[in-house]
Amino acid sequence: MTKFPMTIQGARALEDELKHLKTVMRPQITAAIATARELGDLSENAEYHAAREQQGMSEARIRDIEGRLSAAQIIDVTTIPYSGKVFFGTTVTILNVETDEELTYQIVGEDEADFKLGKISVTSPIARALVGKEEGAVVVVQTPGGLIEYEIVEVRHI
């Protein structure tokens, strides 16, 4: 079975979502289905069909999260000795050599990635170019818009 890297925080977030789905959403959906059944003819009951659809999506998400957690390789980055290099879990500040724009990203697992929060997947082109490099190194990243050069300004091991 293939293992997928995940930070402790990412695993906790999935566990919290799973708990919410099982303890809050599941009972709410079950109650909505029961209420809709009481309304009569199920073939033309929009509330019943909507609740059943919601139930299906919720149960699919539960199975998805359980599968991801069972295949997760949870990595506590605080136990990894700091080497000054970019690796899974580190936060790195890079500088676009051409535009002088600074960007800061934490390199995380695929399930945790959220570009708006500055979290990029370890499998993304930027992360792949950065992993193993040190502060001061210049990397070239192939993007849909072409090649972009970044200088690694800072590597933080949190």
Rank of each mutant, 00 (worst) to 15 (best):
A127V: 05
G145M: 14
Y48Q: 07
V141K: 03
A113F: 00
T99H: 01
G56N: 06
T79E: 11
I126P: 03
M57T: 08
E59W: 04
I75S: 04
V77P: 02
T90I: 06
V138M: 05
E47F: 13
A127T: 05
P81C: 00
T93M: 13
V131F: 00
Y105F: 15
A127N: 07
Q106G: 08
L130W: 09
I74A: 03
I80P: 01
G84P: 10
Y105N: 02
P144Q: 15
D64F: 12
E102H: 14
D100F: 06
E135P: 02
S58P: 00
V122D: 13
R128S: 12
F115Y: 10
Q142L: 15
G67S: 12
E66D: 01
E112L: 05
E53S: 11
E102W: 01
P81F: 02
R63L: 12
E102G: 01
A113S: 13
S83H: 01
Q54F: 00
T123W: 06
I74M: 01
Q73W: 00
N45Y: 02
A129P: 11
K133L: 03
I80A: 02
T99S: 15
T91C: 11
F87L: 07
V86M: 06
S83G: 03
T143W: 12
Q142A: 15
T78E: 08
V131M: 15
E134G: 09
A137P: 08
I74N: 00
A50L: 10
H49T: 01
I62E: 05
K119N: 11
S58F: 03
G56V: 01
P81V: 11
L95V: 14
R68G: 09
T99R: 04
E59I: 08
V86K: 10
T143M: 10
G109S: 05
R68K: 13
Q73N: 14
L117N: 14
A137T: 13
I80H: 00
Q55H: 06
G89Q: 08
G136L: 12
G89R: 09
G145H: 10
M57V: 05
A71C: 07
P125Y: 07
V138A: 08
A113G: 11
K85T: 14
I126T: 15
L42V: 11
A137Q: 05
S70M: 05
Y82Q: 04
